[in-house]
Design a binder for these strands. Structure first.
Length: 453
DNA sequence: GCATGATCATGC
DNA sequence: GCATGATCATGC
């Protein structure tokens, strides 16, 4: 049976083609299998070999690794990958003394055959249909970034920081947690601290772009950097060196250099786009979309302080009370988003472009202070204890954790006005309101200041 | 003066 | 119409 793992590339692709348009019931899916079951079913029922946990690729002769993964259609008609694509588990004790080309990652995943099926909410699993196949070979400029990502992960292991690895450390190739639960802890070579078991993975944002290229005829995204630029510099170095000529210039100077007359606040991101010589907005560039990088402008005042805290999307009260911290939107946001802080410093009444800083939230802060704020918020909502007092003018004071709560993260309104609301799961005790002004989590300005140093 | 609540502006 | 980035207004 396992001789089928010796198939040639052409034979494999031909067999894969026969799966297009078929659902999992066709392959005797009984609903008994676990989550990874679809991959296993395709291995056993379509390619007729026994699922294995070899360190080499599934098809050893053709050097192809088989993957089966879902995508979904969004309300606005676009498509997204439903998940990150999980590859092989990282053995911290072994991987650290490899180089990229001898790594377990490269040994197993040089060529991927990805079968995409369409996930539809409410549909039974057996009815999901395989709609597309992709023989994935690393595009040149992606490959340079993926090699850099691999080194970032490995360098963290070498520094004895495997327990601090986060998905947002890297751009396309990430180390995501994998295991039955968070208690699946593993040894690491240069620290006695146990680290969560992690696997190499392609980020969901990266997979989404693969799905879109495959399913729609839309133009490719506009890249900022070429593979040549990435060969001699890291991503961050390359971006920095493109911006360096403009450090120290005032907002007015930059606007005149780039012929920009807008007064809109978005002009900062627009200015950066011009400096990087791209036509689209920075946040729509290929690298920023695929790596899930969010640009944020920070203006430091003459006294060295920041005026405003940093806001995030408003949260849904009902959703928060029915979610655990581990599965919360907030944790997911900080675990998977890298930020590019664009820093302007005020001097003599004008803002000067000072520097940029790439940052993602350390897990130690995420699972301590941010978690603390989130849990407290959840508790307040579920107990109906939001409003503390109402002033004569009708201004409501709340019990939500404010900016003095823990110096990292707090809760404040984020709405068009006070009547811009979301429904409450439990009516507020003091006001009997069953909906409340939209609120969101904010990062404290002093914490931001600390980050940008 | 700063924390906190409320609101504005813009773009998709 | 709403999400998002950003700023204003009130009052302790």
């Amino acid at each position: 049976m396992d001789k089928n793992r010796e198939l040639t590339k052409e034979e494999i692709l031909k067999k894969a083609d026969t799966a297009i348009g078929k659902n999992f019931e066709y392959y005797n899916y009984s609903g008994q299998h676990n989550k990874g079951g679809f991959g296993q079913i395709i291995e056993e029922e379509l390619f007729e070999y026994k699922a294995n946990s070899d360190s080499g690729p599934d098809f050893s002769n053709a050097n192809i690794e088989l993957k089966v993964t879902p995508y979904k259609e969004n309300k606005n008609g676009t498509f997204s990958s439903k998940e990150r694509l999980v590859l092989n588990i990282i053995n911290y004790m072994k991987e650290h003394n490899k180089d990229f080309y001898t790594s377990s990652f490269w040994n197993k995943n040089q060529h991927l055959l990805i079968l995409f099926y369409k996930y539809v909410s409410g549909l039974k699993k057996k009815d999901f249909v395989i709609t597309h196949k992709l023989l994935y070979d690393y595009p040149e400029e992606d490959f340079e970034i993926i090699k850099q990502d691999w080194h970032i992960i490995i360098n963290k292991i070498r520094a004895g920081l495997a327990h601090e690895i986060s998905e947002a450390d890297t751009l396309y190739l990430a180390a995501c947690t994998k295991g039955v639960n968070s208690r699946s802890m593993r040894k690491q070579p240069f620290s006695s601290i146990l680290a969560k078991q992690r696997a190499y993975s392609f980020k969901q944002s990266y997979m989404t772009q693969l799905v879109r290229q495959l399913l729609s005829s839309k133009q490719e995204l506009e890249p900022i950097l070429t593979s040549e630029e990435l060969r001699t510099n890291t991503f961050e170095e390359a971006i920095n060196s493109k911006l360096t000529p403009y450090f120290g210039k005032s907002e007015a100077e930059l606007c005149s250099i780039f012929n920009l007359e807008t007064k809109a606040k978005s002009k900062y991101a627009l200015l950066i786009s011009r400096m990087l010589k791209i036509n689209n907005n920075l946040s729509h560039s290929k690298e920023f979309i695929m790596a899930n990088i969010t640009p944020k402008t920070i203006r430091v005042e003459e006294n060295g302080k920041i005026k405003e805290h940093m806001s995030f999307p408003a949260f849904n009260y009902k959703k928060i009370v029915s979610t655990s911290w581990i599965k919360s939107n907030l944790r997911n946001l900080f675990e998977t988003t890298k930020f590019m802080f664009i820093v302007f410093q005020k001097k003599d009444g004008e803002y000067y472009f000072e520097k940029i800083k790439f940052w993602n939230m350390p897990l130690s802060v995420l699972d301590n202070q941010v978690k603390e704020t989130w849990l407290r918020t959840k508790e307040i909502i579920s107990s109906g204890d939001i409003v503390k007092s109402v002033s004569a003018k009708g201004i409501r004071r709340t019990n939500f954790p404010g900016s003095r709560y823990n110096h990292v993260c707090h809760v404040r309104p984020h709405a068009i006005n006070s009547s811009d609301t979301y429904k409450l799961p439990v009516a507020d005790k003091k006001t009997n309101a069953n909906e409340y002004t939209k609120h969101c989590f904010w990062l404290d300005k002093d914490y931001i200041l600390e980050i940008i140093g």
